[in-house]
Amino acid sequence: MITVTNLSKTYGGTLVLELPELSIPKGQRFGLVGNNGAGKTTFFSLLLDLIESSSGRIAINDIDVQSSEDWKPFTAAFIDESYLIGYLTVEEYYYFLGSLRGLSTKEIDEWVLGFESFFNGEILGKKKYLRDLSKGNQKKAGIVGSLIGSPDLVILDEPFANLDPSSQIGLKKLIEDIAKKSTITFLISSHDLTHVTEVCDRIVLLEKGKILKDIKTTPSTLKELESYFSFKE
């Protein structure tokens, strides 16, 4: 699904990301962890061609993201609330996304019913602009929005942050259900080690822009990560 070769990004002489090689197969739930400044968001931005790389290339389905835009129809992302259009209602936002991905308003209306329990009755039909929703509800609206039109690749930056406990559990279930039913590839970054190890089948740990660990998730993964992130005596 994703092939990274010799990728690097420097800002004013400081190297913020250096990935000589990384390959993410189709259908994988790929977790990205690391402290602030490790390069998680930089990686996502490079992947979505929102910033230009200093060297190397990223390809989604063998399409170089920097030279073609053909990856867009099957790629979706929710990075932060700036991925919402604040002055639209949730429904209008979904219709907009649907129209970009070839779904009619009717199809969206039916499709979105499947998320009612995740939304907990707080999001749909509220006659509120997205900018007036709470942070948590904005996040939920955005995450569901990124699933519109069943993309092959979904990128979520810190999806668990700001969610209330029920929604965190709901989100885990949502991702697992989708993974069971389809071959969607998930890229998830998180500061919550418990959640990310539960949801992802592979974890990559970044430190100062470099891959420090690349592990297939096992029952002992959480312990391993916790010991890395603990303060050393």
């Binding site: 867009k72 790629t75 700036s82 991925y83 919402l84 259009i85 604040g86």
Partner: peptide, 12 residues
Amino acid sequence: SEYFSFLMCQNI
């Protein structure tokens, strides 16, 4: 501008 990066990674 408030949601420009969103627009830029959509298939618009």
